[in-house]
């Protein structure tokens, strides 16, 4: 097998590695679904996926079919089938460990925009579909993981619109002061080139790792703000032969998700 891979494969593999077994994870649409399945096939067979339409603990059937959010293959062999109010209540209650989301735009403090671009809300330069369930996931889950393409236009000093809350203005306890559940917030940002966390004091995004072979300066150059840089930046293994085999042969042979981005 060749070890060439796509940006989506990098993001999915890096995200999947973060998900520990026997934890609960609120899974968003698309790439997060594939990352959660990959984690289940490797180190986290008992990862309990939950979805906004109320499925708890499915073992999604593969091959993964894009757009099956709520369909039988997505909900296969669940523990329970509930509904949206019930599952968001459980997240609000503190039962869900991870939230895994995609995002259009993110800023230094991990605020997420999936609503609009431009300075005037009434006349957006570009409109997007909106929060969906992302605002709840980012508000309630203990550790939110955001998956996104590593592009300069997506990493901005200040998002045009806070669809889903990160650490807001970065001041101490900003989330708690707003009334958000204590101890929650963005935990990791996974991109096609790097892995970020958030500094516990300043709440600023912090470069933790870069994909093997990439100089950190190159990663930083493709962002519109300067994140903090960890004292020791980890070198991240590219997708392994095992990860690629499972992704390409078992989960997404039609390449509906893993084939949607360019090669690294």
């Amino acid at each position: 097998m060749t070890r060439e891979f796509t940006e989506a494969e990098v993001m999915i593999a890096l995200c999947a590695r973060l998900l520990e077994d026997q934890k609960t994870a609120f899974i968003g649409f698309g790439m997060p679904q594939v990352a959660a399945i990959l984690a289940q096939r490797i180190q986290a067979p008992q990862l309990v996926q939950v979805f906004e339409f109320g499925a708890i603990g499915p073992t999604p059937l593969t091959p993964f079919v894009r757009n099956t959010m709520g369909g039988p293959s997505n909900c296969y062999r669940s523990i329970a089938w509930t509904n949206m109010n019930t599952i968001f209540a459980q997240a609000q209650l503190g039962l869900i460990d991870y939230g895994v989301l995609g995002a259009t735009q993110i800023d230094l403090y991990g605020n997420i925009n999936s609503t609009m671009l431009g300075a005037d809300y009434a006349r957006p330069k570009k409109r997007f579909p909106g929060s969906g369930g992302a605002n709840e996931v980012a508000s309630y889950c203990w550790q939110t993981i955001i998956i996104m393409m590593h592009e300069r236009r997506r990493f901005v000093p200040r998002v045009d619109f806070i669809t889903s809350p990160g650490y807001l203005d970065g001041t101490p306890s900003a989330r708690e002061r707003a009334g958000l559940p204590a101890g929650t917030g963005p935990w990791r940002v996974v991109t096609s080139k790097a892995l970020f966390g958030f500094d516990p004091d300043s709440r600023m995004m912090t470069l933790l790792g870069v994909l093997q072979g990439l100089p950190p300066e190159q990663v930083l150059a493709e962002m519109d703000f300067k994140p903090l840089v960890a004292a020791a930046v980890e070198e991240l293994d590219p997708p392994s032969a095992q990860e690629l085999r499972i992704l390409r042969e078992e989960i997404d042979p039609a390449r509906t998700i893993i084939g949607r981005t360019g090669k690294v």
Binding site: F88, Q92, T115, Y121, G130, S131, N135, E136, S139, Y140, F161, I162, T163, S164, P165, L168, A174, R175, A178, G179, L180, P181
Partner: peptide, 13 residues
């Protein structure tokens, strides 16, 4: 009541 929306521009609009 809910503890979603808080702190966001989603709430503002």
């Amino acid at each position: 009541p809910t503890r979603a929306l808080l702190g966001s521009d989603t709430l503002t609009y």
